[in-house]
């Protein structure tokens, strides 16, 4: 490592006159040190490359076919949620859905996205709108595990549902129907790290 420090020092010398000499000296210096160390430190470059290549993919990259499926894996496996999955990927928030949780996700079906004003989804999928998209998606997630029975219990106790964005959504129970923030729960799917409640609408912010 010491010769690297030395190279950094050399960068601070701006004398053109001495430049060639310095380069020669540096080369000689490295050569000598390498020879004296039997093998030298030429691996520095490769080592950094290796590190870069091995930057962990994050938990979303963990291959595990045995464990019960997590929220992301279940969503990816659902034909009704291709738009949602594409949006999650565009917003690059996959890691949130594979985390230890627990998390409850309200997952709008494809037709819910299709029902939005024309161009809305395309617009949100643009790279420059990533933050906005992430915010909208996060509004569909609540910390904790709330299946449809859990939601009914919450409503019975007059509790609102606290979402990951910080808003509170109202839970309305009407007979067997449960709506959260205006979206109707069509099904409840337990996953390894929480619950997916399939909903018929995208839950958009009030503004």
């Amino acid at each position: 490592m010491k010769h690297v420090q030395c190279l950094n020092i050399s960068e601070h010398f701006n004398y053109n006159l001495m430049k060639n000499f310095i380069q020669l000296m540096t080369a000689l210096f490295i050569g000598v040190v390498m020879a004296s160390c039997a093998g030298g430190e030429a691996q520095n470059a490769t080592q950094e490359e290796t590190l870069a290549n091995n930057t962990p993919l994050g938990q979303a990259g963990v291959v595990d076919d045995e464990s019960a499926k997590n929220i992301l894996q279940v969503a990816i496996g659902s034909a009704d949620h291709t738009t949602l999955v594409a949006a999650v990927q565009a917003a690059q928030i996959e890691h949130v859905l594979v985390n230890a949780g627990p998390l409850t996700v309200f997952a709008p079906v494809n037709s819910a996205f299709a029902a939005l004003p024309e161009g809305t989804v395309e617009n949100l999928l643009k790279p420059e709108n990533k933050a906005q998209l992430a915010n909208i998606l996060t509004r569909h997630a609540a910390p904790g595990s709330y299946d449809i029975e859990g939601l009914k219990g919450m409503a019975a106790k007059n509790r609102k549902l606290y979402m990951a964005t910080g808003d509170y959504l109202e839970i309305v129970v009407d007979g067997d129907n449960v709506t959260v923030g205006g979206a109707k729960v069509l099904a409840t799917v337990p996953t390894s790290n929480g619950i997916i409640n399939v909903v018929d609408k995208v839950i958009l912010p009030a503004n």
């Binding site: 000499f21 000296m25 210096f29 004296s36």
Partner: peptide
């Protein structure tokens, strides 16, 4: 000049390695 410097280098090296 360069030759001199190299010599000094080698001396340093020998001293430190012997």
């Amino acid at each position: 000049m360069i030759r001199q410097t190299t010599m000094i280098f080698l001396l340093y090296l020998m001293a430190s390695c012997s």
